[in-house]
Nucleic acid binder design. Structure first.
Lengths: 319, 319
DNA sequence: TTTGATCTGGCAACCGTTTGCATGGGAGGA
DNA sequence: TCCTCCCATGCAAACGGTTGCCAGATCAAA
């Protein structure tokens, strides 16, 4: 059994409250006593039980971070940035993965609710209504979702979509396939909305799709058949799968079809052809989300981060 | 404020202990009462506070999972498998990332200690001695590390190394570069040990290296200069970076140099050339680790999982 | 009816820690 | 020398639950 505050108190003939104060309000205890307590604590290997502490203080110094799919390389940089930022604020971040399943997402939020001071909800698949209800149990910061009155970190997807479309138009593309993401994704909606506003382009929509390599592989035939000379995909994973599927059909990228993704994940940089993509500031988003959670007592500040077009090898002139 | 057990008790004129039992030992309470309590609880949106419960029961129904680097695609499948397995056992898994830093690793373990029932320690960078000491605070299952008396999930790296080396030998390679991983990695040691036993091969060792794409990029020049016609890399990320670096030097893979990695991560399957690799059963390891933690009361069972050579495009006949 | 077994639910202690309040002693000022 | 005031510490009640023990009620068997 690990040593408790009582063991320490007994060990140096002092009341538990004194031991408690030695750790949580050192200035209230006599330096001599403090040294004695610290020594005894160290000797017994005592460390305050954070869960018990949280029971009275109401603060756990933990926060939860929920993502749709850890296996999507988009998330790790966001996660790492959030953890680093939190560490600097004396907080810890626990991560959980919903497997793109809204039910799992809900359950995880409920589990987190009492064990953390707040939850960073990244690219949620839950409905706004549901999220608002759950927000009664625990403070949220949502990433990639706009919900009124709730702090949010947004990426400027509309702007990125425009950059991508402009790039394609400049290369002479006219008929463009828009391969969207999963249902319930704000990002996907933003993208479609922004694309629909583009003038002079002939857009073909495909969706919803799994935001994975497999999803890309699966739509490849349809995309190939639709007569588009360029594709804008919901994310890089989808784009990568698409390229894979197209090349299996002997369709060259970018010679016959140009492909643009979103996110700027590592595999996109290693792939041949290297993927042209709209870079999402994932790390910055992770940091911002942490700060927003810590600052706002649930106040609805919204931060929007700009995106960036990175032209590499998967886009070229229209045939 | 969220509803507590007291609110529910008051709401249906019953003692808190009855409410408590309704949730944790339903058979002890009269069906009629139970229905009443459940209704009131539902009405107030009451959910038992797991942290408070843990205080008396000593069980949190949470477990921690610590990895060196979430951004390494090797881990996500392991994490997802562990979470899924745990979910089936009514447990939740919280993930944390150490950034390959032993100090962060230690701190995370201490943080987890009182908030989880056990920790899955994946590819630790801490010393055996340190891990043994920390094991007094919280039960562990280590993955990819052998520590006496501690439950472990091992991957048969030695066997995988042998498979890889045999494959290369069969292709006519003789001088082979072995690019190892970070200090403190059991896997890296295993690999070196197994390689050293191979007869008839001329091995050149490089290391330690960061187990990332950057690490591979960095050693590429040395590897190119050492005269080896094939490389066995600590992991796929390293191998991918290596291929990247070599191709930047106009050295063709596999025409001039063959490359084999370890892990079988997704980017390796998308890369051109597709990476030949020793597949590690990451998902199985995640599941096993969870089961081991739940079964053993800390008993030192060890499970070893076999690895598998997957020949793709990055290996070919020696020039 | 008595006896005893079986249910049901209340009581209160406990888990490890924090914190408002009370207390005792010593220092400093008058 | 006496009166304040402050400092350091103790006391005890919380926080949100669980659980061993006990008592009253119910019911069947004798």
């Amino acid at each position: 059994m690990a040593a408790t505050i009582k063991d320490v108190a007994r060990a140096c003939g002092v009341h538990v409250s004194t031991v408690s104060r030695t750790f949580s309000a050192p200035h209230l205890v006599n330096p001599a006593t403090r040294t004695r307590v610290l020594a005894a604590a160290d000797d017994l290997g005592y460390r305050p039980n954070r869960a018990a502490r949280a029971l009275t203080t109401g603060r756990t110094y933990n926060m939860g971070l929920i993502v749709a799919d850890i296996a999507n390389p988009f998330f790790p940089p966001l996660i790492k940035a959030a953890q680093a930022q939190a560490r600097g604020r004396d907080y810890h971040v626990f991560v959980a993965d919903t497997d793109e399943d809204p039910r799992v997402e809900e359950e995880l939020i409920r589990t987190f609710a009492k064990q953390v001071d707040g939850v960073l909800l990244c690219s949620p698949r839950l409905s706004n209504k549901m999220i608002e209800r759950l927000a009664e149990d625990v403070p949220f910061v949502v990433v990639n979702r706009r919900i009124k009155g709730m702090p949010a970190v947004l990426m400027n997807v509309a702007q990125g979509t425009k950059l991508a479309l402009d790039h394609l138009a400049a290369l002479g593309h006219h008929r463009i396939a828009l391969v969207s993401g999963p249902i319930g994704s704000w990002t996907s909606n933003e993208m479609q909305g922004a694309a629909a506003e583009a003038v002079g382009l002939d857009l073909v929509f495909f969706g919803p799709n799994q935001p994975t390599e497999g999803g890309g592989l699966a739509v490849a035939p349809e995309v190939a058949a639709c007569g588009a000379s360029a594709v804008l995909a919901y994310n890089d994973l989808l784009a990568l799968g698409l390229i894979e599927g197209l090349s299996a059909m002997e369709i060259g990228v970018p010679d016959q079809i140009s492909v643009i993704g979103f996110d700027d994940i590592l595999p996109g940089r290693l792939n041949r052809p290297k993927l042209t993509t709209v870079a999402m500031p994932a790390a910055a988003a992770g940091r911002m989300a942490v700060d927003l959670l810590l600052q706002s007592g649930g106040e609805g500040a919204t931060v929007t981060l700009d995106t960036d077009l990175i032209v590499r090898e998967s886009t070229g002139r229209a045939p």
